[in-house]
Computed example of a mutant assay.
Amino acid sequence: MRTQMGESVLSRVVRIFEAFTPEEPALTVSEISRRTGLHVATTSRLVAELVSHEFLTRDEDRRVRIGMRVWELVTRASPTLSVRNAAMPFMEGVHDVVGHHVQLGVLDGGEVLFLERLSAPGAVINYTRIAGRLPLHASSSGLVLLAHGPADLRERALAGPLHRYTPNTPADPAQLRAILAEVRRQGYAYCPGYVHPEALGVAAPVRDDRGEVVAALAVIVPNNVGAQSVVPVVRTAARGVSRALGTPAPQDRQHHSGAVRDGGATP
């Protein structure tokens, strides 16, 4: 169905959902109208329909929020649900040891999308949040996903722009390329002060049953000399999540690769 102006109703509904941000999860109809560029009468009508289907909800002060129905449907059908479910026990174990932030991120377009985060009172500053995003080049999770992602994704990231959050953020393409090679070589990303001077991120890859990197498990800890001690904790947990997802042992992956090269024959 399309409106008289040529834009589909669905496109207008998408614009309404995109008006909400983590910083501003509740908006008035007038604010939604202004952010979407839709006429206030059109916005009011669409919001009312979405509220009737429980995709949006209204507070007592008539401000509009995303409804629980959206969360229900997304959770029911999300392809990332199995990754999150497999990761949670390991994330809880890491959190008990580290006592700061533990998070799980996946690749979504040209950004890392965070599916889950565990934190604690008094933990070091952290800009990430559940359902939040960061550029791939700036975070430990993003660097892991970028390092193991498609070559064309890396080239697009290297082409920039590379936003610098702190003086330590890799914003030079040559520097970023070297960092990605190091992440692949050593098996983890180590990012002191990339997003905030006081915070350090460590992330390791999570692999699926085909051995493909599907997520990154990371911790955010204080940026000090003791941070190196969390590296084996993160790597061990990421391998545990990978095993829970059915990742074959290294020798099995090598055997499978050899079989493919030999046309699928098995010894």
Rank of each mutant, 00 (worst) to 15 (best):
A216W: 01
L134I: 05
G110I: 07
A171W: 08
A120W: 05
R35N: 06
G263F: 11
L146E: 03
V214N: 02
R45E: 15
P232W: 12
R2N: 10
N223F: 08
T128S: 14
R45Y: 15
P79A: 14
V106N: 03
P232D: 14
R210F: 10
P222Q: 10
R76S: 14
P192S: 11
L180K: 02
E60V: 09
A26S: 13
L38V: 06
V206K: 01
A159L: 01
A147F: 05
G246I: 05
H95Q: 12
Y188E: 02
E116R: 07
F20S: 08
T3W: 00
A86N: 04
V225F: 08
E72V: 11
G193M: 07
R34Q: 14
R207A: 13
E92Q: 14
I179V: 15
G109H: 06
L56G: 04
T169F: 12
A174D: 09
G201W: 02
A19E: 01
H53K: 11
T36G: 15
W71I: 13
S78D: 15
A174T: 05
G201E: 06
R210E: 12
L73F: 12
V14G: 04
I66H: 05
V260R: 13
D61G: 11
P161I: 13
T28W: 07
R156W: 08
D252W: 05
A204I: 01
D152P: 02
S229M: 11
S257Y: 11
N126E: 15
V74N: 05
A259Y: 10
Q251N: 06
V51R: 04
L73K: 07
V83A: 10
P232K: 06
P150G: 11
S82Y: 03
L107C: 14
P170S: 07
L46K: 03
S8A: 15
V234S: 04
D262G: 13
R164Q: 13
G110N: 12
R184N: 12
A77H: 12
A203G: 07
P150A: 15
A26V: 09
E23T: 03
R154W: 00
L50I: 09
V47I: 11
R34N: 14
L145H: 03
V202T: 01
T80P: 00
A19L: 06
R69P: 00
A215H: 05
R65G: 15
I16W: 00
S140N: 00
V74I: 10
R58D: 08
V13G: 05
V124G: 03
V112N: 04
V94N: 04
G6L: 10
P248V: 12
G99F: 00
Q4C: 00
R34Y: 09
L56H: 02
V102W: 03
T36H: 08
H255K: 09
R156E: 15
V83Y: 07
G122V: 06
S44L: 11
R84K: 12
R154G: 09
G263D: 13
P250G: 11
A259C: 14
T42V: 15
V214M: 08
